[in-house]
């Protein structure tokens, strides 16, 4: 197994607006000294509450934001790489709410085509679009529809298809099922599990929901106030949490009555 993504002393500090005339700018330390090593083929979950820095971390990993300190390395090279197109072909993302992440004015086929064109993918685009649409379990004739004509689950499948179109090695999913209904959530999680296995993807899954991470991820990082307070094998961390915050997170998950 080789290292595919790595962060070294990664920090992102935002300076906030002045609280008043002549006052100092406050800073928000969204990500503080995070050191991660992600092996190829790993399935890593990042959990934490809102405001813990999960999404900022995802943006840094995607090269969509610049670290204040430290660096992100992709296959040993610091990003931004000289060839960002190559990086983006290999590292793709699925966001939380497909209603806002899909362009409402574009047909599904064109949405999936966009990364193929923008990132200069050399294979036949039409063939690839049909291939990837089928791969995420959608019927082919959906390519001519618009996002508003689809259900929430179908829309998220389109977002996944778009991410998979350039054949990425790493898929970063930021709360991919939080906006979905329970039964649909189940389907999308199964789809993600199957896809990562079949395509040998490296998955980085960000979620506030520990049961989602338990289901999909072998490794987990727990974030609190921008810091990675605990990391390890999901099973070890969930069974024997060492950090106080991890313990609180785990006991707060609502459980079903009489099912132990």
């Amino acid at each position: 197994m080789s290292l595919i993504l790595e962060t070294r002393g990664l920090s992102r500090i935002f300076s906030l607006p002045r609280a008043g005339f002549g006052k100092e700018r406050a800073v928000r330390r969204a990500v503080v000294d995070v050191n991660l090593k992600v092996e190829e083929g790993a399935r890593l979950g990042i959990v934490g509450e809102s405001g813990s820095g999960k999404t900022t971390l995802a943006k840094l990993l995607l090269g969509l934001d610049t670290p204040s300190e430290g660096e992100v390395r992709f296959r040993g090279q610091a990003i931004p790489l000289a060839d960002m197109h190559s990086f983006r072909r290999q590292v793709q993302v699925v966001f939380q709410d497909p209603r806002s992440s899909l362009n409402p004015r574009m047909q599904v086929g064109d949405i999936v085509r966009e990364p193929l064109e923008c990132l200069n993918v050399t294979e036949n685009h039409d063939t690839r679009i049909i291939e990837v649409i089928t791969e995420v379990g959608l019927p082919k004739d959906l390519v001519q529809r618009f996002p508003h004509e689809l259900s929430g689950g179908q829309r998220q499948r389109v977002a996944i298809a778009r991410a998979l179109a350039p054949r990425p090695k790493v898929l970063i999913a930021d709360e991919p099922v939080s906006a979905l209904d329970v039964l649909v959530r189940d389907e999308i999680l199964s789809l993600l599990a199957d896809l990562t296995t079949n395509l040998g993807l490296t998955l980085i899954l960000i979620s506030h929901d520990l049961s989602v991470v338990a289901r999909l991820c072998d490794d987990v990082v727990v974030m609190q106030h921008g810091t990675a307070v605990e990391k390890g094998k999901t099973m070890d961390v969930f069974r024997a949490p060492r950090h106080e915050f991890t313990k609180r997170l785990i006991t707060a998950v609502p459980r079903l009555p009489g099912t132990k």
């Binding site: 189940d186 049961s211 338990a214 969930f238 069974r239 079903l256 132990k260």
Partner: peptide, 20 residues
């Protein structure tokens, strides 16, 4: 039944990870 099944699956998955 589907709703309960989905909740059970997710709960069992989580239980599998948290309880020895």
């Amino acid at each position: 039944r589907k709703l309960i099944q989905a909740a059970r699956t997710s709960d069992a998955e989580f239980g599998h990870f948290t309880e020895s």
